[in-house]
Nucleic acid binder design. Structure first.
Lengths: 137, 137
DNA sequence: CTTGAACCTATAGTCGCTAGAGAGATTAGA
DNA sequence: TCTAATCTCTCTAGCGACTATAGGTTCAAG
């Protein structure tokens, strides 16, 4: 039996976050002591590690809910889990592409800034005038 | 004189967002008609384009507030603006690096998934067992 | 003058937590 | 057994940057 603090230390998930996950239905409401404190079993420790891991990979609570649901049914086809991961991978790649555009634009703006006053600062001018930009963003 | 709708169409910033920016102090509260509707001048159109542009580059409201403030004083040194842009560039790069790690991890997980049921699905197993992961994340 | 589009304010919701208050429970040591 | 320290409880509010909705008012074209 683990207290919520034990669980937190073992998984690296903060205590209020564990309670939040319970509220969101990612983990089941555990048994309580007579004094109303949560007591967990190994099963919940594993589930929470799973969640932690998925969050580290950037999956949304909603996606994790589906994965947790799936993982409870080992006999089902795994296409659903695969799809969630593939979709997430696509969105990660899209985000990288978008950030790279920003990176280039910012590099360009910063490197052009030779001004000493705001009046001739390329950073300010580039923001004021879209015409100075390289592409879409 | 532009209505809030005109401003929205010309800048691509949605109407509620314009009102939000006013509340946040990014744009000054404009004059009103007798019937209490906002009427803007060209000056505010330019300011809003500036803001839009900076938001597109991913700058925070707080950073934009500083840039707007600076742009009102063309005689000041532009080191402050430069610093904001450089710092933002660094944070964009950090985010890219983090996302690339996730990309690789997800690629690996997805490509290993040859299972037909959840029970032997690599996606689920990788999430359940951190030992299957490649590195830190 | 009528009508329909545009505008107003105020409030609540989004996501994934995090912080704080104030009260009660547990546990280790004396 | 008592006490003090630590842990845990619930509830509420806040973050950032909007977005949505409701219910009402004003504007402008015909």
């Amino acid at each position: 039996m683990y207290s919520i603090g034990d669980l937190s230390r073992k998984t690296g998930v903060k205590i209020p976050t564990i309670r939040y996950y319970e509220q969101m239905g990612l983990i089941a409401a555990p048994d309580r002591t007579e004094g109303n404190q949560r007591r967990y079993e190994r099963r919940e420790l594993e589930r929470l590690s799973f969640i932690r891991h998925a969050r580290d990979l950037g999956l949304s609570i909603e996606a994790i809910r589906e994965l947790v649901e799936l993982s409870q049914h080992p006999e089902k086809p795994c296409a659903g889990a695969d799809e969630i991961a593939v979709e997430h991978l696509a969105s990660v790649r899209a985000k990288i592409a978008q950030l790279k555009k920003l990176e280039h634009e910012l590099e360009r703006i910063v490197s052009h800034c030779a001004g000493h006053t705001v009046g001739d600062c390329y950073v300010i001018r580039a923001l004021s005038d879209h015409g100075l930009c390289d592409g879409e963003h």
